[in-house]
């Protein structure tokens, strides 16, 4: 609900980053995975990318976002970054993902304290950034205040290259997902109008 539609004119950079996310999604499709991809951008640089890997891992939580996050943490672990440095970089990160983050991923992005998310098509069944829950909106806070840290919100903009994202998903479900009893991410045909 907080997320804006694509009526807003998005910058050439935004489109360029989303293009890279779409590339990742295509890569997933080639590997018979649900075609969702993402890139993580900090200070103008792509610092990680990820794509869905649920079939290969038999772990249905291995969404594109989780893959990219693990790449980053592994790298920062090697470089010996401190906990506060990790927190600081996450707070400057922008995620470009072809499909609205699901409830799990949106919660994860809030836990990490990410700055901003741009997504392609909406996720009518699982979306955690406005479709089912609105975990990106910081008003979504537990009642218990005090010292316990509250949920962190992040800016969220949907509808970036949504039709490309949808056509990849449609492509996947037309060929049939041999692994899931039911579709994993919803194919939102109206996503371009959200």
């Amino acid at each position: 609900m907080e997320s804006q539609g694509q009526g807003e004119v998005c910058s050439p950079e935004t489109l360029a980053y989303m293009e890279l996310a779409i590339e990742q999604a295509k890569h997933a499709l080639d590997c018979l995975e649900v075609p969702v991809g993402c890139v993580m951008v900090e200070s103008g640089n792509v610092i990680a990318s990820g794509r869905n890997r649920t079939t290969e891992t038999r772990n249905a939580t291995r969404h594109a976002e989780m893959e990219a996050i693990d790449v980053l943490l592994e790298q920062w672990q090697k470089n010996g970054l401190s906990v506060s440095e990790v927190a600081e970089i996450f707070s400057k990160c922008t995620l470009y993902v072809t499909c609205e983050p699901c409830i799990m991923c949106a919660a994860a992005l809030s836990i990490l304290g990410i700055k901003e998310v741009y997504y392609g098509c909406a996720n009518d069944k699982f979306g955690g950034c406005g479709s089912i829950l609105s975990l990106h909106s910081s008003s979504n806070q537990p009642h218990n205040s005090g010292e316990v840290a509250q949920g962190k919100g992040f800016k969220c903009t949907g509808g970036i290259m949504a039709s490309e994202a949808v056509s990849l998903l449609r492509c996947f479900y037309e060929q049939g997902n041999p692994n899931a009893p039911k579709p994993h991410r919803s194919v939102t045909l109206q996503a371009t109008h959200n």
């Binding site: 772990n59 943490l73 010996g80 970054l81 401190s82 906990v83 304290g113 316990v148 509250q150």
Partner: peptide, 30 residues
């Protein structure tokens, strides 16, 4: 307190073993 990972340093200088999303259920699923 999922958001508390950056506040709780627990005597850890580096992020050597840090992964704020490695909650029990996620680890068990893996």
């Amino acid at each position: 307190s999922p958001w508390q990972w950056c506040g709780q340093q627990l005597d850890m200088e580096t992020s050597c073993y840090l992964h704020p999303l490695r909650h029990a259920a996620i680890v068990a699923i893996e």
